[in-house]
């Protein structure tokens, strides 16, 4: 890529907005996934019996089962949230930059 094009894009106000908002969003979601997963791992390591508690009196289903399923769903939902925002807002910003440069 030519240096003048790089400079033009960098100077574009929307570019700074795009980079900043996407970085914050992506790293925050990454952090959230890490907290969910390693929180789960630490519970397994330090309080496994909590996950083995029945969800209600006399039930065979334990708390750990809905928790595990919820983590699987959370991974899917987080990727969905990212796609919705990226295909909407971030792509709109990118298109705005591309149109201004032409």
């Amino acid at each position: 890529m030519q240096q003048d094009l790089v400079d033009a894009i960098k100077a574009h106000p929307r570019y700074q907005e795009l980079v900043w908002s996407r970085r914050c969003f992506a790293w925050n979601l990454t952090l959230l996934m890490l907290v969910i997963y390693y929180g789960f791992i630490l519970i397994i390591a330090f309080a496994p019996s909590w996950l083995g508690t029945p969800i209600s009196q006399g039930s065979a289903t334990t708390i750990g089962i809905p928790v595990g399923i919820a983590i699987i769903l959370s991974a899917f939902i987080l990727t969905g949230i990212y796609v919705a925002k990226a295909n909407g807002r971030f792509d709109a910003l990118t298109r705005a930059i591309q149109e201004d440069l032409q």
Partner: peptide, 24 residues
């Protein structure tokens, strides 16, 4: 039993990371 679920969760949680930091 439950240990199998712990294992599969580990195999799944890399995907959001790929989405946020790697894929595009």
């Amino acid at each position: 039993g439950y240990d199998g679920l712990i294992y599969s969760i580990g195999f799944l949680v890399g995907w959001p990371v790929i989405m946020f930091l790697i894929a595009e």
